[in-house]
């Protein structure tokens, strides 16, 4: 396991591709301790990673390893016990519009139409009603929901709701997109479709993405890099670059390279998964 120092990586990143000398996401020695009554549970123990602007980072780990906690801390909804979390050089102290969250369920406001849901963050940001709705329609087109703006969330399927949820988060024009197993609740076919869609949307928007999943296929298919997390207490045990050509289509999943990545990750994850299987029984 390599623990790269943020400073080193900054140099590397700056030297390689971007003229920006700042990292998109930088997490240093992050720990999180929960208190349950008198007991203390260490959810995250010394997590270090960075992401370059525009990079798609997937975080892969067994259930209960603290992946979601990591994302919630990045989003500013939970606080770190120790360590630092920076996004574009700014320390994270609370939620912010530059970090857009997408949850496992779409969490749309059920009392508004899809269009109003997508337009709402823009309204909050001070945009006029007409302009925000026009922009919402553009975003709905981007996620393939043209013509569904007047529907209520309850009238749409799970996959369509999640598309709308992504559109709403994109309306924040976030620098970093934080996605917490967004396709975990969808059926297998819809999930594959949504993965391809997300690839397309991400390439169009150019934001940094931190994407949490427990699905190896999903992690490899989507990610520029896959961070593998251990079971509780969560820490990053591997950082693997996925050198598959972009744009990636469905056929990538059948390639020998893809299978190699999958096998490698499964070997890494196997022991962690077995451990967490028995750990989660308490």
């Amino acid at each position: 396991m390599e623990r790269a120092h943020a400073d080193d990586l900054t140099e590397v990143a700056a030297g390689l591709t971007h003229s920006l000398d700042e990292l998109s996401v930088s997490v240093t020695d992050l720990t999180k301790v929960f208190r349950r009554g008198n007991r203390e549970v260490t959810a995250l123990d010394g997590v270090n990673f960075t992401a370059r602007p525009g990079e798609f980072v997937t975080v892969l780990g067994p259930s209960g390893c603290g992946k979601s906690t990591l994302l919630h801390i990045l989003g500013g909804f939970e606080s770190a016990s120790t360590g630092s979390v920076e996004v574009f050089g700014k320390s994270v102290t609370g939620p912010g519009r530059e970090r857009g969250m997408v949850f496992q369920s779409a969490t749309l406001f059920p009392w508004w139409t899809i269009q109003r849901n997508v337009a709402w963050p823009l309204e909050v940001g001070g945009m006029g009603r007409k302009a925000s709705r026009a922009r919402a329609d553009d975003l709905l087109e981007l996620v393939g929901l043209t013509g569904f703006g007047d529907a209520y969330p309850g009238e749409l399927s799970g996959g369509m709701q999640q598309r709308a949820g992504i559109a709403r988060t994109l309306s924040l024009e976030p620098q970093v997109l934080l996605m917490d197993e967004p396709f975990g609740a969808l059926d297998a076919q819809t999930r594959e479709l949504m993965q391809e869609e997300l690839n397309r949307i991400w390439q169009a928007s150019g934001t940094t993405v931190v994407f949490i999943t427990h699905d190896i296929y999903e992690a490899v298919f989507l990610g520029d890099r896959v961070l593998v997390m251990s079971g509780r207490p969560g820490r990053i045990v591997a950082d693997i670059s996925i050198d598959l050509p972009r744009p990636r289509g469905h056929d990538v999943k059948g390639s020998p390279e893809f299978s190699d990545y999958h096998a490698r990750l499964w070997n890494l994850l196997r022991d962690e998964a077995i451990a967490s299987e028995f750990l989660s029984r308490d």
Binding site: V33, R35, E40, E78, S79, S81, T82, T93
Partner: peptide
């Protein structure tokens, strides 16, 4: 509640 107000020591 803004994060960070929470005391960090147990």
């Amino acid at each position: 509640s803004t994060t960070g107000q929470e005391p960090s020591t147990p």
